[in-house]
Every structure is written in structure tokens, then in C-alpha cells.
Design a binder for these strands. Structure first.
Length: 208
DNA sequence: CACAGGATATACT
DNA sequence: GTATATCCTGTGA
């Protein structure tokens, strides 16, 4: 079977040829990383199957002072959120509503407990695999729980460094500032006014 | 030990 | 728009 089965690949951009983002990319404020991740590529080879997508929606969660964060100061460091206190560039994976696994990249300095939630991808490669994993549904990767299902991301990838297989984030074509939207984060009750959600406004694959 | 609620997705009215 | 699945975490008895 050829790559790009199902069509919809970005022309002229081969995800395998792009440089993985080093941990230094993540070693800065979560808002900067959330903005910079728009347009980057996520490649999963979990289960030996190649699946790729382009990041179109992220959210920043910024240290203990962010009351919406799993690592908010009122909670402190716990077993669930301990990955957020780890070094930048690793995956923080958590279970939402008992059903959906969600993927974050840890950012900032070690112990800072900041991260970026990957909320939506534009499917680029391995669409047949995504559809199978999503049981034939059309919404393959437009939502944090949907994209982890499509990419077979689960708790086995807790603390996985994001610069190597089976889950790699790579460079992509820059998204001009004019196309980047900023809006309130989805599904939170605290600090709901902060504009920590970043989107590629051109995308058809946003979560809403 | 019991319980409430969540950085969601889906089915149903 | 509303209901509910489903389970882990954090909290407080």
C-alpha cells in the first residue's frame, strides 16, 4: 500500500524528510511553544503502522499559577501530573473523562510543570489506518481524544521523548501570524478568559 | 473506603 | 441542546 492512501496529503512536503524538534524547542514558555507547534508534523509508528498529521490546534497550560492546569498549585505534584514536572520535550499523556487519552508536550524548564495540549491535526498520511482505528468515523483527528485514537497514542507513551519513534514531532511549513487564531481554552471552568488556545484558522480540522 | 468530578466524544431529543 | 459513557485522580472521612 502506498503512503497517502486516501489522498489529502500536503503537496511537496514529505514528513519523513523533516527534522525532529529537539528538546530545546520545548524549553521556553508554553504559550510560545503552543504557537510554534501550529503547522508542525506529528508522526506515529505505534504498532508498526505509519500515520502522520499536521498540528492545527493547541492549548498552553502554564505552570502552577495556571488554575486550569493539572499541575495547578492547589493540586501540587501528584502521581497523575508528575510527568509535567519532567524535562521539556517529553509526552504527558492523561485520561480524560475515563475514556479519552490526550497528548501534551512538556515545556519550559524541568520542574516548571508547563505543557501544551495537542488538540487537533490535519490528517496527512495513513488515513486508512486512522479510519480503521476510528471505526469508520469521518472526524479522524479533530479533537484531543480523537487524534490519540487515530495515532494509537496511549499511556505506554507516558514520558516518551518526542524526538524519536514511535512518536515524533517534526518541523513543518511556517504558519503566518495572520492565520493564527487565539481563543479561550476548551472545556475548562477556571481561568476561562485567557487566550491560550492557538489555531490555524485556515484549517478544516479544528475541534470546533 | 467512598465519592465527586474531569483539558471529551457520541448518541439521542 | 442535553444526556451519558467510563475510570482515574484527588480529597476527605
Amino acid at each position: 500500500m502506498s503512503r497517502n492512501a486516501g489522498g489529502d496529503a500536503a503537496p511537496g512536503l514529505d514528513p519523513d524528510a523533516l527534522t525532529p524538534l529537539a528538546s530545546s524547542f520545548y524549553a521556553r514558555p508554553a504559550r510560545d511553544v503552543a504557537r510554534a507547534l501550529i503547522g508542525k508534523m506529528v508522526l506515529s509508528t505505534v504498532d508498526g503502522v505509519r500515520v502522520a498529521g499536521r498540528i492545527v490546534e493547541t492549548e498552553a497550560y502554564i505552570g502552577p499559577e495556571d488554575p486550569a492546569s493539572h499541575a495547578a498549585s492547589r493540586i501540587g505534584r501528584t502521581r497523575r501530573n508528575s510527568t509535567m514536572f519532567g524535562p521539556p520535550g517529553i509526552a504527558y499523556v492523561y485520561l480524560s473523562y475515563g475514556i479519552h487519552w490526550c497528548l501534551n508536550a512538556v515545556t519550559g524548564t524541568e520542574g516548571e510543570a508547563s505543557g501544551v495540549l495537542i488538540r487537533a491535526l490535519e490528517p496527512l498520511d495513513g488515513l486508512d489506518t486512522m479510519r480503521r482505528r476510528r471505526e469508520g468515523r469521518d472526524e479522524l483527528t479533530s479533537g484531543p481524544g480523537r487524534l490519540t485514537q487515530a495515532l494509537a497514542i496511549g499511556p505506554e507513551l507516558q514520558r516518551h521523548p518526542l524526538d524519536r519513534p514511535p512518536l515524533v514531532i517534526r518541523a513543518g511549513e511556517p504558519v503566518p501570524e495572520a492565520h493564527v487564531g487565539r481563543s479561550p481554552r476548551i472545556g475548562i471552568s477556571r481561568a476561562a478568559e485567557r487566550l491560550y488556545r492557538f489555531t490555524d484558522e485556515r484549517s478544516e480540522w479544528l475541534s470546533r
